[in-house]
């Protein structure tokens, strides 16, 4: 884009726009969590609403449970993605960009695995979707969570390839380069990404409790 870089933009303006951009990634990341919170809260509300209403005494047939091992496997994958993202960010801060890339690719793999389980579990449920409230809820959440896992995996994967690109374009990862615009924007993105993954890990734990412990 350098051919478009106008000479007329002053350094102060550039600095101002950079700060606005970083601020947008920061507040956009938080607002995205807000949006997701309301979506997930709707599902949680649905669960408790149907459970407490217990229409036709059909909230849940006694002894009926969704596949346990695979449910835990999905949950562990989700936690791992969040953990790896966070770990990668800490290493990045400490100056080890390579570790971030490795953690990122690992997390991508784990995310894809989780996605596989999440789709596979739908073929293994021992009940008809509309059998009762619990079964509806489990199917509904599972399908919703396919979307969530796609978002998680997409975000960590794209941040990882971006890390590689930024490093290539800046010509390395020497500490001086970390003040470069590209690096600053990248870090803001990483921070938003890590918060989102952590948030999803918490939500996944909540749903695990709802489906298997309660």
């Amino acid at each position: 884009m350098s051919e478009l870089t106008g000479s007329r933009i002053s350094p102060e303006e550039r600095e101002y726009e950079l700060r606005a951009q970083i601020g947008s990634i920061w507040s956009g990341g938080r607002l995205f969590i807000g949006i997701y919170t309301f979506a997930i809260a709707s599902l949680v509300f649905t669960y408790f609403y149907l459970r407490s209403t217990n229409s036709a005494s059909l909230w849940r047939t006694p002894g009926e449970t969704a596949p346990v091992a695979m449910g835990y496997a999905i949950w562990i994958c989700t936690l791992l993605v969040a953990f790896l993202a966070n770990y990668g960010r800490r290493r990045l801060r400490a100056g080890f960009a390579q570790d971030f890339v490795v953690a990122g690719w690992t997390a991508t793999g784990v995310g894809l695995l989780g996605l596989f389980f999440q789709i596979y579990i739908l073929t293994q449920v021992p009940f008809y979707p509309g059998a009762n409230g619990y079964s509806s809820m489990f199917i509904g959440y599972s399908i919703f969570n396919i979307g969530t896992l796609v978002v998680m995996t997409y975000w960590i994967e794209t941040t990882t390839v971006r890390a590689m690109r930024v490093r290539r374009e800046l010509g390395g990862d020497k500490p001086e380069l970390s003040k470069h615009e590209m690096a600053q924007l990248f870090r803001a993105d990483v921070a938003s990404m890590v918060y989102f993954q952590g948030f999803i890990a918490v939500a996944a734990t909540l749903f695990l409790a709802m489906f298997y412990w309660m």
Partner: peptide, 24 residues
């Protein structure tokens, strides 16, 4: 999902609730 994969979120007779929709 109620329409396609036959869950019963809004179907009272199958453990769902029509009020659920109205609240959401």
């Amino acid at each position: 999902l109620d329409k396609t994969v036959q869950t019963a979120f809004y179907v009272n007779e199958h453990g769902g609730s029509a009020y659920l929709w109205q609240n959401l």
